[in-house]
Amino acid sequence: MRRGFMAGCSLSAYCPQYVRQTVDYLKEFYPELSIIQECCGKPLYYLGEQAKFERQFGRLEQSVKNCEIDQLITACEGCLSMVQRSKQFESISLWTVLAQIGLPEAAIGKAKDSDMVFTIHDPCPTRDNVAMQQAVIKLLKDLGYQVKIAKLSGEKTLCCGMGGMCGVANPKLAHEAMVHRVETLPTKNIVTYCASCRSAMMNGGGQAWHLLDLIWGPVVYQGDKCPENTLNSTFTAWKNRYKTKQLLKNS
């Protein structure tokens, strides 16, 4: 089976280096891995600009076809939800894949001495993807972290506040939803696996890590500060997207 990897816009805007490391790791298992660095068009879908969305999604479809990809591995839950909705080609979340192939050796048990207790914020576009949610819990435990499951998680998860383009349409309401979401969680130390959700959880008053921060970055302890909120700076975000492309080009 020929596989492809799609990081998605917001993850690329957050951490170019971790995207590159993920690709390098996946290639150890799937040497024929193709790279798709494109937008799925979900923002247009949310806007209700259906015709423009279909054109954008068509471009993605064409790239997947050109690369002869049988299964697209996505690191973004927004992308995954759009791809699965279209039913045009097979897709799977990066987290499900990582749980299957296992973490890199250096990452397994690396946090077993950490006193950190994380809770998980599940992104809302994939609330029905139980396999992926279970995979994320497994990956955190394999890293060695303690996990406290939130009552409003899995299928019942809440939106981070940015869903549906609410962050742009009604920023005040979006911020209130972010604060509300953080308040519903059992701890303020939050792990999520969508870069946009991570940014929202920080804006809502939480300390939030992306799962890739924990796989590739340093071990985190109680009281540690999470990485800075790069998505709040438009300039840094676009610079990072360019950097991700360059790093992948040379991979």
């Binding site: 690329s12 040497p31 790279i35 660095q37 937008c39 247009l44 423009k52 383009m165 676009w238 492309k245």
Partner: peptide, 21 residues
Amino acid sequence: KGVELHQLLSRFALFCYTKKG
């Protein structure tokens, strides 16, 4: 309007890349 601009930029070759493996 900003979202539309964002989407336009997202299509720019500067940020897009596909590589067949």
